[in-house]
Design a protein around this nucleic acid. Sequence first.
RNA 1: GGAGAGGUGGCUGAGUGGUCGAAAGCGCUCCCCUGCUAAGGGAGUAAGGGUUAAUAGCCCUUCGAGGGUUCGAAUCCCUCCCUCUCCGCCA
Length: 426
Amino acid sequence: MLDSRLLRNDLDHIARNLARRGFVLDRSLYQKLESHRKQLQVDVEALRQERNARSKSIGKAKAAGDDIEPLKAEVGALGSRLEGAENQLDEVQAELDAMLAGLPNMLHETVPDGADETSNEELRRWGELPDFKFAARDHVAIGEELGLIDFEAAAKISGSRFVVLRDGIARLHRALIQFMLDIHVNEHGYREAYVPYLVNTDSLFGTGQLPKFDEDLFQVAGTSELRMIPTAEVPLTNLVRDTILEADQLPLRLTAHTPCFRSEAGSYGQDTRGMIRQHQFEKVELVHIVAPDQSYAALEELVGNAEIILQRLGLAYRVVMLCSGDTGFGAAKTYDIEVWLPGQGRYREISSCSNCEAFQARRMHARWRNPETGKPEPVHTLNGSGVAAGRALIAVLENYQREDGSVAVPDALKPYMGEIETLTKT
RNA sequence: GGAGAGGUGGCUGAGUGGUCGAAAGCGCUCCCCUGCUAAGGGAGUAAGGGUUAAUAGCCCUUCGAGGGUUCGAAUCCCUCCCUCUCCGCCA
């Protein structure tokens, strides 16, 4: 949510910024609603003030033993006028709120302009691309050959966009998650959390999935309002919803491993092969809650924390800054980490790290007490994958494959794999 | 799932339909007193919003949430949510 004060005072500035995303802000509609709201609110408050004062006088008159019937009639008439004005105000306010809730975040000045991912800006590359002496297979072929990735079983049990992993690959997948969590907790200073996978609509509004992106979520039938989390960003960030943090409690650095559920509505035909895009996948999430002047330093730290994972796994990657048109609804600035997938011969997103500034904090009333002003002010929130486990599994399989169809276990994961050093056909 | 109790300010905890944003205590901040490590006295101490150049005033809202009754609701009625106790069930 944008700052409504800023919206009132500098509408053109905001409109220009949002236009960089290709978002058209209807300024005249906004101004119409806002001036209407202002007038109605002033009227309503004046009427309320009068009613309050007169009602009090009724109390006094009654105590004095005077006849209060005429006064009651008078204030009663006032009350019905007030009710009418209040209804109008509620209506306009609701329209204004709906408009405000649908506005994306303002972009940071360093975000490059562009309509789609082709304008994203590559910032750096790390690692050597593997040089296979044979035709690199993709993870589907590798998994099939090993007999350890089973899409048919998943289709029978659930449907498309699900997967069953077996034996060594299932264990490798689990190893990746343990490995990532251990690094973030032991080396990067994150606090681990176990969180609910079903969340209410207030939480989803807070992080910005609602009201605009409900079709991407799975709803839980039989409950009033629960949805399955599309990312641990939702429960982790909402930990600070409706709270005022003291300055010495910041920064908060939180991590959690959770499954993520996405309906993938609107992505029919995309990435249908393999486990790139699933309805259910595992992810280790990183969240920072920081004082506003720290948030861009925190973003660099956050993306660095995610990069370490790929470096330890020996996976080549690049970091790109998303352009204006590709940056998500709630983000002011986003870095994607893309890992090299030999089977596809291209880099694919494995982590997305965003600074949401005060956008989510305003929606969820997450504040800190600024020692300089003594007042509660919105915190800044950041989130990033550290990293997506399903895609990390794909990357390991494709980058560590051997000509004979086996797959080597990366050194970093060996402590988590028992005696297994190679995945071979059983 | 069954039965009962309850949700009030940072915390504990009063509250009769009217002057209650709300007693008292604790905590915290500032001041005074006191020369001895303790105590005493005084003042202050919620959030959101509107208006405004204003972090000045003034005003509105908020006692779990939403409705209702009433001139007027923390207080009465209804629905929902949550917490606690006991029973049942369960990993």
